[in-house]
Design a protein around this nucleic acid. Structure first.
Length: 851
RNA sequence: GCGGGCGUGAUGGAAUGGUAGACAUACCAGACUUAAAAUCUGUUGGGCCUUGUGCCCGUGUGGGUUCGAGUCCCACCGCCCGCACCA
């Protein structure tokens, strides 16, 4: 009997699949299609164990769907543009292109030994001119249809990466990649008109039944719909052109509690006043400088500057309110102006207390006293309150009802209109970087901004660039900018901005359906393969990538590159958890922690020790990080245990949506188990035992295993499926059944394991004489008749507590079951001669006697 | 502040409202071995004494619905995540 040697069998079966083109996807009308996709990787240089988990889950689905008769598309590519390549060029020299393609080669060579059932013939990288050229074509189509536009805007400038960032890429006021404090600059930039789709992107979330509720909620919050009243305060003695100040509020029911009007330092009126009044200018300059970090915002004083201007209250023209410029009012939300109601808002309360403005309540709690001068009263909008100064009549109602009534009344009286606002801003896509997709437009003195002709695409990046000075190499390239205007034929210059790399990943899933097409997509292929039936990736993309992709799918439909049915491109989404690893640390001489590599730590009784006997502190389940020395390298794992062990382990133990901790003992156990399965199967292959009475119980267990594992795979319960496979293996190992039954069971075991451990499964399949490749074998079917036992064990409860059990035929009528249960000694004891109050018999499940 | 999620043995976790702790790790004991590794077998939620086909308790805490609750409802405690000067 031979040993289980993954290093021998794994390459063997990978070659067999490649030779048979098992995972090549071609359009075919006689099978239902299934498109499974994992979020494609950035070519950082090495694959990470998180990639292994992500792609293994996708592969389980892909292989399972293949064996259930689907035409499966399971492609792989690389999200290859981006800053790290430029940083590498700056740090170690060389060219971003060489760095990127060499990394891709390395990562492909690391991924192939994992045996994923991928159609490698479809692979591309987003930095391939064939890909980004089509992206440029798409951009031009979007420009034609008004989905892209150019405007002067205050943007987020990352001073380290020296580029503009989208709002979505600014986290706590810092660049998402560089971590540098973002500055505000005014530049002319390209924007995608995603805000036109706010309502639609929000509404369509409802139809995404197979998306995690959490992701849908995060997107809904991000889009940020609010209903409110927009109206104007008329001004008293204001500069020309400022007769009115437009204000937006979600709480028009508190209008009678208004104490001041506040405007943003960036508000046109503030800018006007700034010109004549140095005090205003100084205040505004100071306010604009204020940090944008959450911490800075938290600490920053709410500062106001009394402009001396007055406005009239819309309901009482004799009532005048002061106009303040305030540092906490944002120009890019609402109208850049607010009215302050200190009675029902903490911030306004603080502000009015500080500047000694009146605090007047508009509603109070239904019962009890409330000192509105001391604190604001801020109930939820669904809470019923007592209106002390109602706008639309009712005195006792909820905030929601009062708001709606107030909007209706204001509209009726011409005071303002009910409007719906969204938080979602247009997506600024210009980046002042080299390693990205060039924006395919030229600047002509005569014609202005002109899109390139499609026949000139791709507008390729020049290779002869240097990174010895900061900034965009395209800007300082001697000749690349020079071009002729596609419109008038005169001399013109190219746009040197490139696209945000999130553009690249917003349509790659569509490109996979026809990766070599000479248009962005091939409609026949797109109609056949779209949508992605199952998309799998990290929760960190819940907003950015997934929202952008949803927008792009719509844009591609409008520009004729995707069918209408693909407007929501991902039918089902699964967000998998991370692979974590313990951190082993001791305290260094300087008091700072010293991190130890797992191989230097010996684990005994749940404690860790260094070679010299020093105990280390174990921090369990931490995110892998190079600086914490707790990174597990998949390449090493594959060398040590083989791909199947790595695949088996990352799927077992934890539910796939949760984090799983990589442990040496767990990997060891997975490896041992696979070796055991191999051994059991080999023994069965060589055995010759006649049929026994143990055959049927084994086959029954087999059918239960088919049922449970199938259910587990279908519902992303991979950990539960694996637990069932362990249990079934134990049953098979102990079974005294004859060889034929055992062979059948072992073949089925191989099939059930094949999506997770495909190499081992093929090997066993071959050893046991299975026909062809197991990858192509039809998935086993559970026989319903074999799932139910003739005899069932029913637990007997007395008052809901388990007190015994009886074995009864499964079809025994209820009253017979009841009789048997009542005859049970524990029931007799409990009844003590009396009669039960009630007997509940749930056929096949349980008997409960109430005494 | 707003929104969402999660609390089950030493550990990861299982359980369509119906036998809580499947499966695995770790630990302990045994077989094989000169020994170790490997392999195989068995034990392991807590408590009680009368050692049984025994009794009591047990899924963060307190209450509720139900014949029956880890699961559903309410309140609280703890942890995690997302958003946030958003008007």
């Amino acid at each position: 009997m031979s040993r289980y040697e993954p290093s021998v069998i794994e390459p063997k079966w990978q070659s067999a699949w490649e030779e048979a083109q098992t995972f090549r996807a071609d359009r075919s009308e006689d099978k239902p299609k299934y498109y499974v996709l994992e979020m494609f990787p950035y070519p950082s240089g090495r694959i990470h164990i998180g990639h292994v988990r992500n792609y293994t889950m996708g592969d389980v689905i892909a292989r399972y769907k293949l064996s259930t008769g689907h035409n499966v598309l399971h492609p792989m590519g690389f999200d290859a543009f981006g800053m790290p390549a430029e940083n590498a060029a700056m740090a170690i020299g060389g060219h971003p292109k060489d760095w990127t393609y060499s990394n891709i080669d390395t990562m492909v060579s690391q991924m192939k030994p994992l045996g994923f059932g991928l159609d490698w013939s479809r692979m591309f990288a987003t930095c391939d001119p064939e890909y980004y050229g089509q992206q440029q074509a798409l951009f031009i189509d979007m420009l034609d249809t008004g989905l892209v536009y150019r405007k002067n805007a205050v943007v987020n400038w990352d001073p380290v990466d020296m580029t503009v960032l989208a709002n979505e890429q600014v986290i706590d006021g810092k660049g998402w990649r560089s971590g540098a404090e973002v500055e505000r600059r005014e530049l002319t930039q390209w924007f995608f008109k995603i805000s036109d789709f706010s309502e639609e992107l929000l509404d369509a979330l409802d139809g995404l039944d197979d998306w995690p509720a959490k992701v849908k909620l995060m997107q809904a919050n991000w889009i940020g719909k609010s209903r409110g009243l927009q109206f104007a305060f008329s001004t008293v003695d204001a500069p020309d052109g400022f007769d009115r100040i437009e204000v937006y509020t979600t709480r028009p029911d508190t209008l009678m509690g208004a104490s001041f009007v506040g405007i943003s330092p960036d508000h046109p009126l503030a800018k006007q006043l700034e010109q004549d009044n140095p005090d205003v200018a100084a205040f505004c300059a100071e306010a604009r400088k204020g940090g944008t970090t959450a911490e800075a915002i938290e600490k920053a004083d709410k500062l106001g500057f009394d402009t001396g201007l007055r406005v009239r209250h819309p309901f009482d023209t004799a009532w005048e309110l002061p106009v303040y410029i305030a540092n906490f009012i944002l120009m890019d939300y609402g109208t850049g102006a607010i009215f302050g109601c200190p009675a029902h808002d903490q911030r306004d309360h603080d502000f009015c207390t500080k500047y000694e403005l009146p605090i007047v309540d508009t509603f109070l709690p239904l019962e009890g006293d409330f000192d509105i001068q001391a604190a604001p009263y801020v109930p939820t909008k669904s809470e019923k309150v007592r209106y002390t100064r109602p706008i639309a009549g009712e005195t006792e109602q909820t905030g929601d009802d009062a708001v709606n009534a107030a909007i209706d009344l204001c509209e009726a009286n011409g005071v303002g209109q009910g409007v719906t606002k969204f938080r979602l801003r247009d997506w600024g896509l210009s980046r002042q970087r080299y390693w990205g997709c060039p924006i395919p437009v030229v600047h002509c003195d005569k014609c202005g901004v002109v899109p390139e002709k499609k026949e000139n695409l791709p507008i390729a990046l020049p290779d002869d660039v240097t990174f010895d000075v900061p900034g965009n190499p395209l800007d300082r390239h001697p000749t690349w900018r020079d071009c002729t205007c596609p419109n008038c034929g005169g001399a013109a210059t190219r746009e040197t901005d490139t696209m945000d790399t999130f553009v690249d990943s917003s349509w790659y899933f569509a490109r996979f359906t026809a990766p070599r097409a000479t248009t962005p997509t091939d409609m026949a292929e797109a109609e056949y393969w779209m949508n992605v039936d199952q998309y799998i990736g990290g929760i960190e993309h819940a907003i950015l990538h997934l929202l952008y992709s949803r927008f792009f799918a719509r844009a591609m439909h409008i520009t004729g590159h995707l069918p209408e049915t693909a407007k929501e491109p991902f039918n089902a989404l699964f967000t998998q958890g991370m692979v974590t690893h313990a951190i082993y640390q001791t305290k260094g001489a300087d008091g700072r922690p010293v991190y130890h590599y797992p191989e230097d730590v010996e684990l005994r009784d749940g404690k860790g020790f260094l070679q010299d006997g020093t105990e280390v502190q174990i921090i369990p389940s931490a995110k892998m990080s190079k600086s914490k020395n707790n990174v597990v390298d998949p390449v090493q794992i594959i060398q040590q245990y083989g791909a199947d062990t790595a695949r088996w382990f990352v799927l077992s133990d934890s539910p796939p949506e949760r984090d799983v901790e990589w442990t040496a003992s767990g990997a060891e156990a997975a490896s041992k188990h696979l070796a055991r399965v191999f051994r059991i199967a080999s023994e069965i292959a060589g055995s010759d035992v006649p049929t026994t009475k143990e055959d049927e119980p084994l086959l029954r267990e087999m059918h239960k295993a088919i049922f449970d594992v199938t259910g587990g795979v279908e519902s992303f319960g991979f950990n539960a499926a694996i637990a069932k496979l362990y249990a079934f293996t134990n049953t098979l190992a102990k079974s005294k059944a004859g060889s034929d039954a055992k062979k059948t069971a072992a073949l089925t075991l191989a099939q059930l394991m094949s999506p997770m451990t495909p190499h081992l499964a093929e090997e066993i399949w071959q050893v046991l004489g299975g026909e062809g490749l197991i990858a192509n074998a039809p998935w086993p079917q559970a026989d319903d008749a074999m799932l139910v036992e003739d005899m069932v064990t029913l637990p007997i409860q007395i008052n809901g507590k388990r007190r015994g059990e009886i074995d009864v035929p499964k079809d025994l009528p209820k009253d017979e079951v009841e009789k048997l249960a009542l005859a049970h000694h524990s029931v007799q004891k409990a009844l003590d001669g009396g009669t039960p109050k009630k007997v509940i018999v749930v056929p096949g499940r349980i008997v409960n006697v109430v005494v």
